[in-house]
Amino acid sequence: MNQNGLIRSHRELEVYQIAFEAAMKIFELSKRFPIEERFALTDQIRRASRSICANLAEAWRKRRYRAAFIAKLSDCEAEAAETQIWIEFAVKCQYLDVELGRELYRTYDRIIGKLVKLSKNVDRWLLPGSQ
């Protein structure tokens, strides 16, 4: 944030910071997944978790177009929900401990909640003169 309390970059958004940290946690944990999952579950959970951050960065850059901004935030929500599904599979396959899986799942619930709040207050984030 700058001196006026304004957020100047997507990296300053709390939801981005939480999503980035969670994606890094998933990356570290997924290193322990079996080798046969390398091109399946491991790639999928890493891709979905990272995609939230990438889509947030894209959304931030599209703030001059209301519909595009909302669409990218919706993509973020979808990727967060997909990550939750991969977490469920990882737990069910016993690649992740149940309690750790619950903790990660709750983190993505929190991310989704913050994305929904961002979407409900979209006009606050749009650039002046947006379409």
Results as ranks from 00 to 15, higher is better:
residue 117 K to M: 08
residue 114 K to Y: 08
residue 121 N to Y: 01
residue 22 A to T: 07
residue 60 W to M: 08
residue 101 G to W: 06
residue 98 V to T: 04
residue 45 I to G: 00
residue 114 K to E: 11
residue 59 A to F: 11
residue 68 A to W: 10
residue 131 Q to V: 15
residue 35 I to F: 09
residue 122 V to G: 05
residue 10 H to S: 09
residue 98 V to K: 10
residue 18 I to W: 00
residue 34 P to I: 04
residue 89 F to P: 01
residue 89 F to W: 11
residue 32 R to E: 13
residue 21 E to D: 14
residue 127 L to A: 14
residue 121 N to R: 03
residue 131 Q to C: 15
residue 72 K to Y: 09
residue 109 D to R: 09
residue 53 C to S: 09
residue 109 D to Y: 06
residue 26 I to W: 02
residue 67 A to P: 13
residue 42 T to I: 06
residue 113 G to M: 08
residue 120 K to W: 00
residue 30 S to V: 02
residue 55 N to L: 01
residue 64 R to C: 15
residue 50 R to A: 06
residue 95 Y to V: 07
residue 51 S to A: 13
residue 3 Q to G: 13
residue 6 L to Q: 05
residue 48 A to Q: 05
residue 64 R to P: 04
residue 10 H to E: 11
residue 40 A to W: 09
residue 70 I to N: 11
residue 87 I to T: 06
residue 97 D to G: 12
residue 123 D to E: 15
residue 89 F to S: 06
residue 28 E to A: 15
residue 73 L to F: 10
residue 97 D to S: 10
residue 54 A to Y: 03
residue 129 G to D: 06
residue 123 D to Q: 12
residue 30 S to Q: 05
residue 43 D to N: 11
residue 18 I to V: 06
residue 107 T to E: 00
residue 106 R to V: 12
residue 9 S to M: 11
residue 38 R to M: 10
residue 26 I to V: 14
residue 89 F to V: 13
residue 5 G to P: 03
residue 47 R to W: 00
residue 33 F to G: 04
residue 48 A to H: 01
residue 118 L to V: 06
residue 60 W to G: 02
residue 22 A to N: 05
residue 12 E to I: 02
residue 29 L to N: 10
residue 44 Q to N: 06
residue 73 L to G: 06
residue 105 Y to T: 09
residue 22 A to R: 01
residue 118 L to E: 02
residue 86 W to N: 03
residue 50 R to E: 09
residue 50 R to L: 08
residue 52 I to T: 01
residue 95 Y to F: 11
residue 109 D to L: 13
residue 99 E to Q: 14
residue 36 E to C: 09
residue 128 P to N: 05
residue 14 E to R: 10
residue 84 Q to P: 03
residue 101 G to E: 11
residue 109 D to C: 14
residue 130 S to D: 04
residue 92 K to V: 14
residue 30 S to Y: 03
residue 117 K to H: 08
residue 33 F to K: 08
residue 107 T to R: 03
residue 111 I to H: 01
residue 88 E to H: 14
residue 121 N to L: 04
residue 33 F to Y: 14
residue 26 I to L: 15
residue 96 L to C: 05
residue 24 M to N: 13
residue 67 A to H: 14
residue 89 F to M: 10
residue 42 T to S: 10
residue 25 K to T: 15
residue 5 G to A: 12
residue 89 F to G: 05
residue 21 E to I: 12
residue 24 M to H: 15
residue 80 A to W: 00
residue 117 K to Q: 11
residue 57 A to D: 02
residue 94 Q to Y: 04
residue 34 P to V: 03
residue 27 F to T: 14
residue 23 A to C: 01
residue 129 G to L: 04
residue 13 L to P: 03
residue 106 R to G: 02
residue 24 M to T: 05
residue 127 L to Y: 09
residue 69 F to N: 01
residue 3 Q to V: 13
residue 63 R to I: 06
residue 30 S to F: 02
residue 7 I to D: 02
residue 20 F to E: 10
residue 114 K to F: 04
residue 124 R to W: 07
residue 5 G to R: 00
residue 57 A to I: 06
residue 101 G to D: 12
